[in-house]
Design a protein around this nucleic acid. Structure first.
Length: 296
DNA sequence: ATCGTGAAAAGCGCCCTAAG
DNA sequence: CTTAGGGCGCTTTTCACGAT
């Protein structure tokens, strides 16, 4: 058994308020802080958050500050203790004492997470969900995949940034795919702009993420006019391979092979020297383009 | 060990053009 | 008209190093 966190619960509504880093930190903290049995408080160190979520310490510290500023979290002053044991006090001082803040959505998220976790422990009762329709639906985001297994693994810088997003999007897609297959016996489709609105990421980012997920073998999709028809969303098994580059083009491969030649013709013809009386910026841009062209 | 700082690297998003 | 996708500047994260 792995004692590290396998996944965190997120909701799509989270992204209306939080960046993806904040969403990871908040959902992890909320998992503990929503629970009455745990005193509705989160007590762990920065290092613990780093280890479980695959972030650097600076990132974690900054995200916590930001979450407090957004009233999603509240710093609870630890009770003053007698200094009998120096080591114990030291750990207590360094660990964060965080509670759910006063933000409306943070409270709602925490309350429903608590209800859902209770139901999970008791075993699912359909009657309960029928009488208490959940205002927030959660999806699992697998975070274990982002923990470095050994120090020999040399990840690109900022790779985790992209992969954290990819895993969050994957959790969403997996959840939607599961439900539409189970209850509607069909695949589901979403447009890039829809996903862009849900996660508050730019359309280009969504496209890059979808390509990353595809190259990792986590999803299979088809372009259906303006929507992406997700034919298969797989469980996360291997994320360690990473990716080679970001691609924002969603068209199928055989169309892609014909496009580059076409594009080159267009860019060549578009590469016209500006008129003699054109502003200097235009000339500079032209030269930059020429240079870029020669490099290829 | 943790925290702060600065620089480099990489991703992200704005803006623009092409294409439908 | 809307949408897809490329280029480039800006922002964010990570890494390295030093102090406490």
């Amino acid at each position: 058994m792995n004692n590290k966190t396998q996944f965190v619960f997120m909701s799509d509504g989270l992204f209306e308020h939080l960046t993806e880093t904040e969403a990871y930190i908040f959902s992890f903290v909320a998992y503990f802080a929503c629970d009455a049995a745990k005193g509705k408080i989160f007590k762990r160190t920065t290092a613990s958050l780093c280890k479980n979520l695959g972030y650097s310490s600076n990132t974690v510290r900054y995200a916590i500050e930001s979450l407090i500023n957004k009233s999603f979290l509240l710093r609870d002053t630890p009770p003053t203790r007698e200094r009998k044991n120096l080591k114990y006090n030291y750990i207590e001082e360094v660990s964060h004492h965080l509670k759910i803040g006063s933000h409306e959505y943070a409270i709602k998220f925490s309350d429903w997470l608590s209800i859902m976790l209770d139901q999970l422990r008791k075993g699912t009762s359909k009657e309960f969900y029928k009488s208490h329709p959940a205002e927030i639906s959660f999806f699992k985001v697998y975070v274990t995949a982002l923990q470095a297994k050994s120090k020999t693994e040399n990840w690109k810088r900022n790779q985790s940034r992209h992969l954290h997003k990819a895993l969050a999007l994957h959790g969403y897609l997996f959840n939607k795919g599961y439900w539409s297959e189970k209850h509607f016996n069909s695949h589901f489709s979403r447009s890039v702009s829809f996903l862009s609105a849900v996660f508050q990421w730019s359309p280009n980012t969504i496209r890059r993420l979808i390509n990353t997920l595809k190259s990792l073998g986590l999803i299979k999709y088809k372009i259906d006019s303006r929507r992406i028809l997700f034919q298969k969303v797989n469980m996360v098994e291997k994320m360690r391979h990473g990716y080679k580059q970001l691609i924002s083009q969603l068209t199928s491969t055989h169309i892609k092979s014909t496009l580059p030649t076409l594009n080159k013709h267009i860019s060549l013809s578009a590469l016209q020297r500006p008129a003699p009386n054109a502003p200097p910026e235009e000339h500079a841009a032209f030269l930059a383009k020429m240079k870029a062209h020669q490099r290829v």
